[in-house]
Amino acid sequence: MTGPHANPEDLDLYALGALDGEDKQTLEAHLRACPYCQQQLAAARQRTALMGLAAPPAVPRPEVKAALMDKVRTEKRAGTGSRAAQTALSKIRKKRWGLRFSLGFGLATAVLAFATYELAKQDLDRGKQLQQLQAQLSQDAAALQAMAQITGAPDSTQITLLQQPNGPPGQAHVLYNARMGLGVYSGQIAPAPSGKSYQLWLVPASGAPVDAGVVGANQQNGAVVVRLAPGLAPKAFAVTLEPLGGRPQPTGPMVLVGAVG
């Protein structure tokens, strides 16, 4: 650190992902409180990312684009078909948050969950409280940020995904806000067989399931942020077993399922 702001070299190294140890902790503490250095970091991230141009361009197979466009069209159809369900959902969902939603953030999550519970119970200023908590919790920043957004919204919901008959043992939770298209997944399932991945799906009231991303077998200690098209109301969430890396549409058996409401 030089003067009131971070060294440009430190920002470059941080953007590169090379900074660690005490140097990293010191810089992160400063960044949390310094909008100027956050902007400088943004510049460093873009600058550093451009180093990737050193790799020679390579043309992907045409099938990659075709699969992408298929996926986009599927999502568009699913989004159109779910508006009515989303409206109905917003009327019936006024749940308060308790401590039972167990994300695997250890103490940090427990603090946030407890505070969220207290916020709901005491009807305090949620935004202010969550902001204070976010400042305290530097780890898993994005997941916590997403969680704070979701728990601060009255139209969010929690879904518990349970093991299916003859399926591998496991359980997971999704905290989701359909209006924001934002959710957090955590859970644990028996390890996937070799060459297979677990994939999370949002099952809308009508239309095809929507890919919510590949998830690890053990997400107890690192929740996954789920971002989908806003306004897409879920009837359920499900985890299926898919070929490695996942598929645009479910092809394998359902491992965990949880209905909304």
């Binding site: 902007q39 943004a42 990312a49 940020q145 997403a146 942020v225």
Partner: peptide, 13 residues
């Protein structure tokens, strides 16, 4: 997990 945050940062420059 952090990439959304990074995206936000990158989108301010």
């Amino acid at each position: 997990v952090l990439e959304e945050e990074e995206g936000d940062y990158a989108n301010t420059f």
